[in-house]
């Protein structure tokens, strides 16, 4: 397709090239700044706890542990098995607590309720609590990133 007239003048071409290339160079400078400002959040693959600290938990009780920078809860169920949750409400990130009398997790911020398996049953939360894998290996209680079940 042959054009009758140029799309742009030589001056416009030069101006555009200057502006565009300058933008590209400054963009490449911007990249490290953006990466610096948003550091990657690294979640631990697993957390190893001393099983002795959790062995004598009464059934239907919880104990906290650090999951990276978030709070985690180890729960001893009625049948003696253990579950692990990330104790962050799926609504707006408040820390949840466990109420043993009602066998429910409760978020005080907006009155969110989860049952003893972490399924959301009342209030604003739209997703269940995040479950973590939990395994006893000798003296260690290992909490894993992948959810079991």
């Amino acid at each position: 397709m042959k054009l009758k007239h140029s799309l742009f003048t030589r001056r416009q071409f030069l101006n555009g090239l200057l502006g565009g290339w300058l933008a590209a160079l400054l963009g490449s400078f911007l990249y490290p700044i953006v990466r610096f400002v948003f550091p990657p959040y690294r979640e631990p693959d697993q957390v190893i706890l001393l099983f002795a600290d959790y062995k004598d938990m009464p059934p239907n009780s919880v104990r906290t542990f650090p999951w990276g920078s978030k709070p985690g809860l180890v729960k001893k169920n009625d049948d003696g098995s253990y579950s692990a949750f990330v104790a962050i409400c799926t609504h707006l990130d408040c820390n949840v607590t466990y109420l043993p009398e009602q066998k429910k997790f409760f978020c005080a911020c907006h009155e969110g309720w989860y049952d003893e398996k972490g399924i959301n049953i009342g209030g604003p939360p739209s997703r269940p609590l995040r479950r973590l894998g939990i395994v006893v290996e000798g003296e260690d209680l290992i909490i894993k990133k992948e959810d079991v079940e």
Binding site: G20, W21, A24
Partner: peptide, 21 residues
């Protein structure tokens, strides 16, 4: 045309730096 060229150059610039860093 200009808009496309500027966007292309910026994308190339960013893309190159993504590949580099």
């Amino acid at each position: 045309f200009w808009a496309l060229l500027v966007i292309a150059l910026v994308v190339v610039g960013l893309g190159q730096s993504l590949a580099q860093e």
